[in-house]
Design a protein around this nucleic acid. Structure first.
Lengths: 341, 341
DNA sequence: CTGAAAGCGCTTACAG
DNA sequence: CTGAAAGCGCTTACAG
């Protein structure tokens, strides 16, 4: 048992055939006599031969690899359940189709320091971007230099580049579902909790809410800006708002976490949920159920987004072009006890 | 702008030098005249040349890639914050050191269907295993066939294989910290919530608790078996237990999620936390703070585990052997309001 | 049914 | 300081 890896030549020599016969047996190509084939398989087993993926890749100039780029400020990027769900959907689909996933988190500010993703040799890329529109455009143009097809997750703006597609969920409609639910139970005044750095999905949610409000002829919801999306900050900002002015009928959180912060603030302020004030979140990730009362929220399609990204990319690799340049997945209201029915 | 990728030969031709001069310039090897070098760099830039990683890998038989194998039953494996934190620590460290990460989730039952990880061509592997001891031994022996160094995360048993190391946190001590905290405030009777499929880390926690109980000369804590680790199941099992017999002074959850299930069950049963009964969790991931009362728990070293795994693996790749075969990271009690001080 | 040749795109000695 | 040759481990036509 030497330390040198076993190559196809070793197998060929041992089996008394040529290397390409071994190759043919292993890949089921060409016609090989069954006795020869069986012999080859035995030798492969005995020698513990494993084909070199690197050689295969070089020869076929195909990588069977998809790169996933997550461009976010937080180095702890996987702690966001929305992101992890997408990554999970992606890996699961890829693994089932014999593709590997290369995962890379990168800060927006580091993006300019090229080479941080240039060395990813993949057949296609999936990216979750962040930052303002100018930055995102820059990211997309940098991605395009890789000359491989790519999918942008949760992107709202269709980029100029052609060999790519955007896949997102219908945040706008999610916002509308929340708003209709609230208005149906008599809600008239509403605050919307938004983070300072307002990314497209969250903006779409709020625009969805606002559109229904407008259609109902009600005064527009008031936007409360919070420094970030953390529980603590949203708790504090909500409490401050409640102390400074009259409480609204409902508070719409940009996501579950923000909503829970707001809910705890309301309770601390002496308000009953949902009797005095109603709260809604967005995403329906795990912990929303531990909260008391259980949060009314919208179930996100995060896992499906990741799966779909993988599916579209693999389909694109087989065809020559993407079949669609924009895919929108539906979301569904998940009524809880933090709103009145 | 043709579609064919630019190779080192194209650059060489265009720059009027040989391929190896280009290689030398790009890798800073050998002495190259500065004028030649600058010219080469210009051509590289102009042609948008990116070296083929596949060719480089084949030539150098080095992959600059670490594979991460997560062997768990749940296809939604990244939804476990303990796992995501480890993955994050791993990727961050690897990226900073110019290594790529290949991520793969795999069910224990699929493990036998070899080839599911055999095609991962990496310089080293990191694995999170599950299942009983027999299964784990099998996994380790399978991993060893890859002939690359590997790290086992959260493994408690040092495997026979030599070119590997285990890295885990001190779950036993975490259990002891919890137990000392409880006994110090007068706790005498205690239930421990354990999942049916009892993995080593959780068992270590409980043994830590039990050891302190034993040293204090108290009757051993009672183990409550729950079908799984979900909130719902633990809620139901705890409620059933509370109805069948006298409530203990405290309930120690195997992790935060189980603890929250137990806490809600206690409250539903009419008990006050922590006045009538105390609850403790384990891990200190995000949501434990949203719970009311805030859970007493133990802060896990998950992120550090991932980082350390990467560091050890890269060090091993440079040296010839692992410097240590067992690394244990400390954990810290995080007192909350679900226990009395 | 089987094999000798060529080549994927690099880099490492080794000459000049 | 620079280059011609060889080879990493495969697979794809093409002959026999």
């Amino acid at each position: 048992m030497s330390d040198k890896p076993v190559t196809i030549k070793d197998v060929a020599r041992e089996a008394g055939v040529s290397a390409m016969t071994v190759s043919n047996v292993l890949n089921g190509r060409g016609r090989v006599a069954e006795t020869t084939a069986q012999n080859v398989r035995d030798v492969v087993e005995r020698l513990g031969y494993r084909p070199s993926v690197a050689a295969r890749r070089l020869r076929l100039s195909q990588q069977w690899t998809i790169g996933m780029l997550i461009v976010v400020e937080d180095p702890d990027f996987l702690s966001d359940p929305f992101i992890t769900a997408q990554v999970t959907g992606l890996t699961n689909y890829l693994t089932a189709h014999a593709y590997s996933l290369i995962l890379r988190g990168i800060k927006p500010s580091d993006f300019r320091t090229s080479g941080l993703f240039q060395d990813i040799e993949a057949d296609g890329m999936v990216a979750i971007l962040s930052g303002d529109e100018v930055q995102r455009k820059w990211f997309v143009s940098e991605l395009a230099t890789l000359r491989v097809p790519f999918v942008l997750l949760q992107e709202h703006q269709r980029p100029a580049h052609d060999d790519c597609t955007i896949i997102r969920q219908d945040d706008f409609d999610g916002g509308r579902q929340i708003a209709r639910h609230l208005i149906a139970n008599g809600t008239r005044t509403c605050w919307m909790l938004m983070p300072q750095t307002e990314w497209p999905a969250m903006r779409a949610r709020m625009e969805g809410v606002a559109s229904v409000w407008r259609e109902a002829g009600l005064p527009p919801p008031e936007v409360i800006r919070c420094a970030d999306e953390s529980f603590d900050v949203n708790y504090a900002e909500t409490l401050a708002a409640l102390r400074s002015r009259k409480a609204p009928d409902a508070i719409v959180g940009g996501n579950d976490q923000m909503a829970v912060g707001a809910m705890k603030a309301c309770i601390a302020h002496g308000l009953r949920v949902p009797e005095d004030i109603q709260i809604t979140g967005f995403n329906a990730f795990d912990f929303w159920r531990y909260v008391d009362p259980v949060l009314t929220t919208v179930r996100s399609a995060a896992h499906a987004l990741g799966e779909r990204a993988a599916a579209e990319l693999i389909a694109r690799l087989q065809a020559a072009t993407f079949s669609s340049h924009e895919i929108i997945l539906p979301v569904k209201l998940e009524p809880g006890a933090s709103t009145r029915s």
